[in-house]
Design a protein around this nucleic acid. Structure first.
Lengths: 203, 203, 203, 203
DNA sequence: AATGAATGAGCATTCATTCAT
DNA sequence: TATGAATGAATGCTCATTCAT
């Protein structure tokens, strides 16, 4: 009786939270093992919950993915703060940040794909995440531009997409580390030695 | 006359060739509509042939894809020849070639994925195609390097992958043309204004 | 009262149990009609359930078969008890038991095959069933051996296999009842009138 | 021209014979590898002939099987003659012959099945083969019966079926040699020590 | 006589999602 | 709120057999 009053709003939440966590743990394992296209049913099973429970917490794969990545946001935010507070140049900070994004997007096999889609649609739970990182990228980019070490005609959004693309190239079983580094470098400096002069290029 | 001899081996193919063509047509349509992961059975149905017939001609999705792309190879080869014979600089030729590859890999939604995989495995019907284009890329790149307009530390394979990556970013429903161009430009010139000096960099 | 408690876990099964039963009924019919290699899809259809439902209940053909036979186990167990409690000789009991097994394995066309396979692998849902019957066979055999009416150098497992083999010979469309009986008799007494004397032969 | 007259009936036959032989060779390999249910198409391919050619020579699987076994008949006939001419007892000869049949029916995985079916239908190309061996079994059996070493109430046909059954039990991956021998022995002597006296039992 | 292309139903199995309990 | 049963279309692929060439 007493419980019904005090716990009505709390106890179920404790259960729910526990289930949510177990689902996230299971998803983390499962996606690591089989990539982001793995079976949601299998995740529910591994988490020890019913399929319906999974769907209650995460109505679709993207929501689950978003929640999963949110848990990793902390690491990326920490990285961001570290890059910001460091004594490195703004260019190196931007480079470090892009590499951090590339690594982040490579957390699970196949992850770049939904991230790219989310970047395009804006109506996805992942879009929020992506947008946040684009904003951060923008601040790094602006600093580098102000420093004179980044081109003014480059947009943060495109750098973000380039980072995803590099992550995509690395793929799951890429097995060619040289290419991974080369692509990152290519994004930084391009393949051309000479650049066309442009109006908005303030250098 | 001569034809009559070779026709003896060709005549039974009248049927086969017709079916093959119909399958390719159907696949072209279907992949354009639903992307390269569309149902093979559905393609057979649209082509008006039995599933077995499709599988006889193209034992798996990659073979079908390779045949489909082979039909487009001609256009790419023509583009290559045009770029080679033109009076443009080697840098512009390389740029044009990379853009051609990017466009080619964007023929169908999802096409970059198997192309990337093929680039890594070499045991795929698509691998041959990819390798051929990497070789062409190499000749364009070398010309540009000899001209002094391309960096010496860039590899053709990585440029090819970058072109695929750009194609991947564009996606099917990208809806952001500015990014498409920006990514291509980024690959050419990078985001940095300043470059680390390197030993093998002949500028 | 007690039921009310256990029902809590059983109630959601009202649906499931009904479907399960319908599947078993359909399978019974279908296997009787077409043999144990009949299409599982067709069984699902006949049962009026989706294919997924069938696979949820019985992940593979062997599981379905095992469940189907489990329903018949009762009859066999009853037969065993009847044979045990009867006043017949141990030899007749063993003979009756082997005949019961032979009849049981002839329930469906093609059933002896998976039973034989299960006898060999032990990692099959049918293996449990088979092993159980081998054990029972052993008790009957031992009684007959103790009685002096069964040879000491015969193993229960081989008698079980012989019963399966006889069932196999009968097949579905055997149409030769004489052979069926003859084979059973052959297993009992062999074709030879004279037997090589053996050390472990206590007669 | 000249050829048309003299070779019209001969040359094609040479071709046909060569193809027939190649098909038989391929089938021998293939059935050995994959059992008698292996794909006929694959056999045609391995033989280097079209599917139609295979079907011209052997309208169905049973015909192919029958031809394949016919080639092995020689070995069995030789065995028969050797058993007949030997100085062993008629009982041992019969035993040897049954063992020879069991081994013969074990030539390919799954072979006992069509042999049993053929024994029952008599409208199969294999039926001829089986009937021949039943006849031979009969002669061995009669000799043993005359010698007094085989029971008079046993029929050759049932012994043949028992031999097939033993072959079936051995299966492909039986992995239990003891059972193989035990079953053979069981067929010879049965499991009972005491036999019911019967009218037609002349011992 | 030979070819090999075509057929197309058939198979086992999966999975995201819904919904009754 | 949680459960997990149900759905049922969909997938890639095979194969015995026929038949046009």
């Amino acid at each position: 009786m007493q419980e019904e009053v005090t716990d009505r709003a709390r106890r179920p939440r404790a259960d729910a939270q526990r289930n949510r966590d177990r689902i996230l743990d299971a998803a983390e394992q499962y996606f690591s093992e089989y990539g982001v296209t793995g079976s949601l049913d299998a995740i529910a099973k591994r988490a020890g919950v019913g399929a319906g429970t999974l769907y209650r917490h995460f109505p679709n794969r993207e929501c689950l993915l978003a929640a999963l990545l949110a848990a990793r946001d902390d690491a990326l935010v920490a990285r961001r703060d570290h890059l910001r507070s460091g004594s490195m140049s703004a260019a190196d900070a931007l480079g470090g940040w892009l590499e951090a994004i590339t690594a982040w997007a490579g957390a699970f096999d196949g992850l770049p794909e939904p991230l790219r889609a989310a970047t395009a649609t804006s109506s996805s739970p992942l879009a929020v995440t992506c947008q946040g990182f684009i904003t951060t990228t923008e601040s790094f980019l602006r600093a580098a531009q102000d420093e004179g070490s980044a081109r003014r005609d480059v947009r943060a959004r495109d750098l973000f997409l380039a980072a995803l693309a590099n992550s995509w190239v690395r793929g799951a079983a890429m097995a060619d580390d040289a290419s991974a580094a080369a692509l990152t470098e290519l994004t930084r400096t391009g393949w051309a030695t000479v650049r066309p002069v442009r109006a908005d290029d303030d250098q």
